[in-house]
Amino acid sequence: MKSIKLIILVVASSIFIISCEKKIDLELNESEQQIVVEGIVHDNLGDNYVLLSKTRAYDNNEAIETISNAKVKITDNLGTVYELDEVDTIPGYYTNASLTGVAGRAYNLEVNINGEVITANSTMDAKSQIDSLSYEEETDFTDEDTTQYRLYCHFTDPANVKNYYRLKAFGKDGQKDGYISLTDDYFDGISTFFPLFEMFFDEGETVTVQLLTVDEANHRYFTAVYSSQGGEVPGNPPTNLIGEKAVGYFGAYAKSEVTVIIGE
């Protein structure tokens, strides 16, 4: 929905040739530093991580400050505790090789940084599988000469259950920008296909698309992250993290992943 409005505004303002855009320097108020927690548990073995870092001033373009030597653990509702260890080569990145997410289970995350405790909860829902991926040639509004492709993800939504999804895509440059967060309001119970808005792919590019089934809190978080970026109502997205000075999210996602090579 928001992308539609974005397209309209982009076209409208590009038609208005008199306007001009320039880079400026602004003195912004600075808030207290917050701890950033990104935690995901997937339904594959070892496919989980918690990223810990700190926020920084807006004009600080130096490297991101990560948090090492924190105690990170995930407990499921059966009582099993998984401790996540920091990977030597990636500071701030914690993972556990023996944890596999299971649908229907509730997971609790606990992060302890020198006595500061942050917790969160997330339940993994049943997986919706990607049926197939298709692509179509697209003319990018802003760049006429190159032929680009838009990807569509085909899947079937379970009827009469409220489902929330996230779509992620990985191309030749790594993860594609954008947060696509959906509810099944428009397509409850039907087989549908959804375009990956604002993501363009080149001929011959190998693309991996992930359809993640997420819980309501995570859906609200990613929808809000999108709209808070200079959109409707700027503000911090509602986080499911419990703790002082914590931003970010924790989610248990069921992942369905399909790879396709464009043009073949």
């Binding site: 602004l26 912004l28 108020n29 600075e30 808030s31 530093q33 917050q34 950033v36 990104e38 870092s53 700190k54 926020t55 920084r56 001033a57 807006y58 991101i64 992620k168 790594g174 993860q175 920008d177 954008g178 947060y179 992250v225 808070s228 970026q229 200079g230 700027p234 503000g235 911090n236 931003v247 970010g248 999210y249």
Partner: peptide, 25 residues
């Protein structure tokens, strides 16, 4: 009066703005 970021951080490898006061700028 507008709400401008007072900091930033990364989510999913993308920059996210940090806000504090509504209409503080």
């Amino acid at each position: 009066a507008v709400t401008f970021p007072t900091g930033k951080y990364q989510i999913d490898n993308q920059t996210v703005n940090l806000y504090s006061d509504r209409n503080g700028s």
